[in-house]
């Protein structure tokens, strides 16, 4: 398998299916682990990092649990391919050698030697933390049956950052909340969520800005709670938000239904006809169309297509279309061309 084989196919977690797919784009679970007896990556010497990498790769690449996996290494990738891997959330860091073992469908990825020795991440389409939970612990068990993790009775799994201690487990959901944004209920909700031990922030847009009404919610506490507790709490927090969003959408339909429908179709019209599209504009217009799909107002396009567009219109992915570095205006032109091409065949 080559890097391009992975990149050519959209990740399975962007299928647009799964429970509550009209509101929850995807669910993510992450485990942070370190190997016993080795210094954490931020302070380890290069030769130590190499040993850790070899140890983990040996276990993962030879385990029956990991069929059809591919090793992404910054050593072998061009700068633009690294940017693509980052846009797909496969690489996170910014310095040193980064390695990631990923399954072909991109549902499971294991990062080596970032802030911690091992970071396992599993993704699913829609709202489905339970399935992810069982998948990730099968992988964790497979690794820990061969390698010894750094662990203490009191602090649990030892991590580089004290915010990951204990279970080392972080759950998150990508939520689309246009109803709560349009009815101006979002700010109070965000405050409430934070006070319940969760962090929530906009997925697109710079610090403090929210584009496209996309939010990512994560549990903050990892120590002092069991994994089941964290799953239960996150499930009920996200469920409550889903219910509020549904109510807000109903209210919008009741009060301004026709003008909402008009806005949604206009957004669709622009996407189908624009000659230049910035990423920000695409995110916002596609957000309106996504709401239209959720409300049953538009069926010319499905969530899967919108999800794939969301990924493939990122700057690094657009650049890949032409295989050359582009300035911002050229990217906007290429993005608009690409979106028109995809929508024409719908």
């Amino acid at each position: 398998m080559k890097f391009n084989d992975i990149i050519d196919n959209p990740p399975l977690w962007l299928e647009g299916d799964g429970p509550f797919n009209e509101i929850v784009l995807s669910s993510i679970i992450r485990l942070v682990r370190n190997l016993d007896g080795y210094i954490f990556p931020t302070r380890a010497k290069e030769e130590q990092l190499e040993i850790i990498s070899e140890l983990v790769k040996d276990v993962v690449l030879n385990s029956p649990h990991f069929k059809d996996v591919f090793l992404i290494s910054t050593v072998e990738l061009s700068k633009s391919d690294i940017d693509i891997a980052k846009e797909r959330h496969l690489l996170k860091g910014s310095s040193g050698i980064m390695e990631c073992i990923v399954t072909r469908d991109e549902k499971v990825s294991i990062n080596l030697n970032e802030e911690d020795h091992i970071r396992i991440e599993c993704r699913a389409s829609g709202f489905d933390l339970e399935t992810l939970y069982s998948v990730i612990f099968d992988i964790d068990d497979a690794i820990s049956s061969k390698l010894v993790y750094a662990f203490r009775e009191d602090y649990g799994y030892l991590t580089s950052c004290p915010t990951n201690l204990g279970t080392g487990m972080r759950l998150s959901c990508i939520l689309h909340l246009p109803g709560l944004v349009l009815t101006k209920k979002i700010n109070k909700l965000l405050k409430d969520i934070s006070s319940h031990g969760f962090s929530v922030k906009g997925l697109y847009g710079k610090e403090g800005e929210v584009e496209g009404s996309f939010f990512q919610i994560k549990n903050l506490k990892t120590l002092g709670l069991s994994e089941e507790d964290i799953v239960r709490r996150t499930n009920s927090e996200v469920r409550a938000i889903i219910d509020l969003e549904k109510k807000a959408r109903d209210k919008l339909m009741e009060e301004v239904g026709k003008s909402l429908e008009d806005k949604i179709w206009r957004a669709y019209g622009i996407l189908k006809n624009a000659r230049m599209l910035s990423q920000k504009e695409f995110v916002n217009l596609s957000s309106a169309v996504r709401l239209g799909i959720g409300l049953g107002l538009i069926d010319n396009i499905d969530l899967k297509t919108l999800n794939h567009l969301l990924l493939y219109t990122g700057p690094a992915h657009i650049q890949r279309l032409k295989g050359s570095i582009m300035d911002k205006d050229t990217r906007c032109i290429e993005r608009a061309n690409y979106v028109r091409r995809v929508l024409r065949y719908r």
Binding site: P162, L165, G224, L225, S226, E227, D229
Partner: peptide, 18 residues
């Protein structure tokens, strides 16, 4: 740690060797 976490005692899983 007590301040940023739910407590200072791990209540979750442990590695198979532990």
């Amino acid at each position: 740690i007590k301040k940023i976490q739910e407590g200072t005692i791990h209540k979750g899983r442990f590695p198979s060797d532990a």
